[in-house]
Amino acid sequence: MSRDAILPVRGLGDRLTGLFWRHPGLMVALMLALPLGWLVLVYLGSLAALLVQSFFSIDEFSGLIRREFTLSTYAELLRAQNLDIILRTVTMAAAVTLGCAVIGFPIAYFAARYARGGWKALFYLGVMLPLWSSYLVKVYAWKLILAREGIITWATGATGTTPVLEAVLAIPVIGGVSLSTSYIGTWSVFVYVWLPYMILPMQAALERVPNSMLEASADLGASRWQTFRTVVFPLALPGIIAGSIFTFSLTMGDYIIPQIVGSSRRFIGQAVYQLQGTAGNIPLAAAFAVVPIVIMVIYLTIARRKGAFDAL
């Protein structure tokens, strides 16, 4: 055992530890260099490129991109058929977000407040398991479930509830010939696919609410509903917002689900896919792609104004 006041350097590890100890900023700089480089160059760079493209326009005769600043591409977004696409997508994204929040909340609440040990493991497994299989496989599986010749039609026939299914399909706008070609079907698949992204942040937010806070609310005379409204919900709100950022933006950008489970009515993702592919209209595709970004910024600004992040 050495009796010196200073212990000998054992190797490179000790040397580096000493270096970082003397220059605390160095470690942070090294840690951030790679991700920051990625974020700025690849991520924000491509975003900037996108933004720039959206201010170009396409020459209608030659089909070539005119690299001059113009707002005409954005003006084109305001045409009735394009506005329809935007409105449809935003409505769907909002409906999916709401659906995920309503279905996900009890699950997240159970996991955060009641599940312990094995139950908690089961919760994580249950929520994450769908993410282990391919997204495409899940969507096609849902097509089989929802199709006219699919499981649901068969099940309603077997249980004599066909009239219920027919009544649901007869609802104007969201109904249709079959579930797999209706908005109901598209919505169901969206909700299924994005649900984990809503549950996990919600559960994390609820987990941070100490039990004593719920007890304090009850102690001061609040009913369960009042406690939910005035304490649980506001404290879970940052988590719900975080989840809704996922569900909202993922729905707005998706072009596969509405194509496989849905009608011919297009969503933003499909429009972008077709415009940059077959139509070759990159500026309009870029302008379409900017729409979800703008909507998210507006959404988050409103959320912040309303105090959604006060509990952070």
């Binding site: 007890e215 506001p234 509990a311």
Partner: peptide, 8 residues
Amino acid sequence: QDYALFPH
């Protein structure tokens, strides 16, 4: 014991 004040 932890006061349980509502942070929001």
